[in-house]
Design a protein around this nucleic acid. Sequence first.
DNA 1: GGGGTGACGCGTC
DNA 2: CGACGCGCCACCC
Length: 113
Amino acid sequence: MLNLNIKVYKYLQSIPKGKVVTYGQIAEDLGNKNLSRAIGNILHINPDPIKYPCYKVVNNKGELSKNFGNGGINIQKERLEKDGIIVNNYKVNLKIYQYKKSSGNYLIENYFK
DNA sequence: GGGGTGACGCGTC
DNA sequence: CGACGCGCCACCC
């Protein structure tokens, strides 16, 4: 699919404040789970990191992007925290912050360790 | 048009 | 845990 980046950027803007998504999740929502890799590629060439909240995207483990393209991982961390998201050692608790359309309402136990 | 690349994900060891 | 390896895909030379 061409111009996937447009879709991705649009998707980013649909993420509610205080929530995050994973690469795989975006890929899945866009129709193909295997797009996850391409997603990362696209975010890397993000023309406007301010306009498109790419900082809300983390990997499947909840880790921030080490190669964040706009000021580095620290910037991403700061932005997340500014959204009210608790970042623990450059990781977020997906159980709490992952944005899910069909919220299955999971138990928010101490999934961390 | 062909080939390299990566901000991924998942299974193995 | 951490380290590899492999598959997957769109993007950029």
